[in-house]
Design a protein around this nucleic acid. Structure first.
Lengths: 240, 240
DNA sequence: GAACAAGCTGCGGGTTTACGCAAGACGGCG
DNA sequence: CGCCGTCTTGCGTAAACCCGCAGCTTGTTC
């Protein structure tokens, strides 16, 4: 068995290397990549079937890299190993997992034991392993309980990109009013409202901008999500 | 000499520990804290004069912690050791450094040698050491060359928080029109206009929201800056 | 002290947002 | 089939935003 490690922090990389050796005696080769771009390249060259991947890398982040790898070989098993459980990451990952693929999401704060168990479960047993904390987010995010619908999330991203209502309408094939409807839905769920309770009128918010801020503070959005969305937007703009 | 390490990643923490031991033979005690809150507490108890501090920690980030520590003992020497050189961080740090304090800003990607040199320079020689890459930002940021004025940055933060023009005017003691003037200045510098040049009218941006996005993508803003700004805002709101 | 740049402010108007109201459209369910 | 909930769309309005124009107050420079 060969394992590919994609991780930009040298300390974490060597820690992972050791963990893989310890957890998977049947693994004879470990390859390392220090960013997503190199990771993609090595995965292609070696036809890697077992990958441990960091999210949040400078050159090309884990989600991007995983997407292209899975596009080429959907049966690849990928364990995401991340510092954070931002909803933006979780949502980003669940959106690109191919049907039936084995993957995992483990936090860097997890114990050695957890990491090794996850390595075996995914790479040997082909099971999905998702950290409890992450799992919670995932369910809320995909189910409709308390979380955000895809269309709500979509419009959140659109205003975060700085599009006007009209531009969004054009992009998503909706009428102006529908876009505004969804916006109100979003404001509602994000609870962008307050300040009216006081008699003090000064503290009024610009709903649109405030929604973005709150989404950031709640980690519904993060840098990497913005970056991806911006790239998609540019693509769309170029395609007319 | 005693050294306090404030860093939430265990791997990085032990790496730092070793680096300190190697670079500073005169150091007899090393204390470790795993987040900003504990860091503050230990610094107070031990009256630490030499601190290595990570930015970006979950519980209380490095800038917050450093601020309160410096408020209590401004002669404390702090070496910031960070993964990133976001302008938001750099600006945040330079704003809280007391006059004449010795401090440093070294990236985690720097070599062992660089780190050890910085440790000696700051803790033994009381010199300021700032990574070249960071230094560049700092100068552009504080000088006016190409960078953003304090007032421009201020209003950027205000709209990023989601305040209305009127609310900003109230908070900053300006007229409505002045606020809008500054906004235009900001839009200008951020180059939020691009799409207007095209004949294609579809890709119109909402300037206010777009400015926030661009600031994020350029790392003028990041999560930690938002978080701090939000805290200040709440404080201000409470104070009426 | 005159000239000048830079910033604050009021006025006015064109555009975009936020949102209530109400009329279809679509899909499930008894 | 008729009832009902969810989603879409148009109309209309009040508020907020973007911004050109022009009068003022500063601080700077020659």
């Amino acid at each position: 068995m060969k394992v590919l490690i994609v991780e930009d922090d040298p300390l974490h990389r060597s820690y992972l290397h050791e963990a893989v050796n310890a957890a998977l005696p049947e693994c004879d080769t470990v390859i390392e990549a220090e960013n997503g771009t190199i990771g993609e390249k090595l995965a292609r060259e070696h036809k890697s079937a077992h990958i441990v991947m960091d999210l949040q890398m400078a050159s090309r982040n884990g989600i991007e890299a995983a997407r292209t790898i899975w596009k080429e070989r959907p049966e690849t098993r990928i364990l995401f190993w991340s510092n954070y459980s931002d909803e933006a990451y979780v949502r980003g990952v669940s959106r690109i997992v191919p049907d039936g693929a084995a993957y995992g999401y483990v936090l860097k704060s997890a114990s050695d034991e957890r990491l090794k168990l996850a390595l075996r479960s995914i790479f040997v047993e082909s099971q999905c392993v998702v950290d409890r904390e992450v799992r919670g987010l995932q369910q809320r995010s995909l189910g409709q309980t308390n979380g955000f619908t895809d269309s709500e999330y979509e419009i959140l991203v659109d205003i975060a990109l700085g599009l006007t209502d009209r531009a969004i309408a054009g992009r998503r094939g909706l009428s102006l009013r529908s876009v505004q409807n969804r916006l109100q839905q979003l404001y509602d769920k994000l609870d962008v409202y307050q300040a009216a309770s006081d008699d003090n009128d000064d503290g009024r918010f610009n709903l649109r901008a405030r929604a973005i801020t709150i989404a950031f503070l709640r980690k519904l959005l993060n840098y990497s999500a913005l970056e991806r969305a911006e790239a998609e937007l540019q693509e769309w703009l170029d395609g007319k």
